[in-house]
Amino acid sequence: MDVAGNRSNWRRTQVVRERSAKPSFAGSNPAGAFSYEVEKMRVGKEEVLRIAALAHIKIEPGEIDHYTKNFNEILDFIAQMNEVDTKQVSSAFHPASEPSTPMRADTPQPSLTTEEVLRNAPERFADYFLVPKVVE
């Protein structure tokens, strides 16, 4: 089976974004060294808290150090990627084998019943989901 012929076009082009550059990764810790000084961290506690807030997760004060440490170890390891010269790589890769997204006809299909829809709702009111008031 000739593999080179299959999937020879890279489907995903890079999402181009004008963003400010992150400070350089010079001097990253080798993957083997796991002892860590909080001060030398790539990502500080405030940043970790900001990311958690963005992800709608709360980190308790007692946990913040632990999360920050793990976070930095992982990021340091990932920073290895910077060794690779990707300037010539024009696109990312998605492993799906079809060249374009399948499309369906505009024909209505049966929906779920309202009971099925609300079956797992933590709180409901008549046929609606119920949440605390949304303030604009």
């Binding site: 890079q14 990932i78 690779v84």
Partner: peptide
Amino acid sequence: YDAYYGKACK
């Protein structure tokens, strides 16, 4: 995005 996700995709 570029440094991590963008890079990883490449």
